[in-house]
């Protein structure tokens, strides 16, 4: 196993773990960016360059900015930063549930009858090949993802919009209430 993988894994896991335990949200977000970058490095190491760049663009570039904006838009008071009385209980429960999951997953991975093949000859996927796949085999999925992203962004805008009423002075909409002829 290459040293590179170990370093990548340690950096990723470490920064993720610290990010999840820090109290300062800004620090958490920055560490998470490091973790995401680590995952991108893993993709590079595994030979999936395109995915690595996608990861960088989407997570390190875009999602992190959204997260930072969200953090800044929702500034908390000092009181909120204090650990609430029930937090300890929740943390214990979380550690137990997470630990159980981790144990189960590790056990499953270790005991799984996976082929202990020496690293197979690396498969390389050129961007051209990917483009053809995207536009050919997976064209429908691509379209659906496009629609999904559009809808998600519209939904996000609607959710986050203030929904304030029209400023005073603007006339009400010109549509008159429907009137019907009686008989």
């Amino acid at each position: 196993m290459s040293i590179a993988f170990l370093i990548i894994a340690l950096v990723t896991l470490g920064s993720a773990a610290v990010a999840m335990s820090l109290r300062n949200l800004i620090h958490s977000a920055l560490l998470l960016i490091a973790s995401w970058a680590g995952i991108a490095a893993f993709y590079l190491w595994a030979g999936a360059e395109f995915v690595a760049f996608a990861q960088l663009l989407v997570y390190v570039g875009a999602v992190s900015m959204v997260v930072l904006f969200a953090v800044l838009l929702t500034r908390q008071s000092r009181v909120d930063m204090a650990i609430a009385p029930d937090a300890l209980r929740r943390i214990v429960a979380a550690l137990l549930a997470g630990g159980a999951t981790l144990g189960v997953l590790f056990g499953a991975v270790v005991s799984a009858p996976l082929p202990i093949a020496a690293s197979a000859t690396p498969v390389t996927v050129s961007v051209r090949q990917m483009g053809q796949e995207l536009m050919g085999t997976h064209a429908a999925a691509l379209l659906i993802v496009g629609a999904l992203l559009t809808v998600a962004l519209l939904g996000a805008i609607i959710l986050a919009s203030t929904g304030r009423e029209d400023p005073p002075g603007v006339a009400p909409p010109a549509v008159a209430p429907p009137t019907r002829k009686t008989s």
Partner: peptide, 12 residues
């Protein structure tokens, strides 16, 4: 999460 753990245990 607990359900997941239980499921995996059942399978294993």
């Amino acid at each position: 999460a607990i359900g997941f753990v239980m499921l995996v245990l059942v399978v294993m």
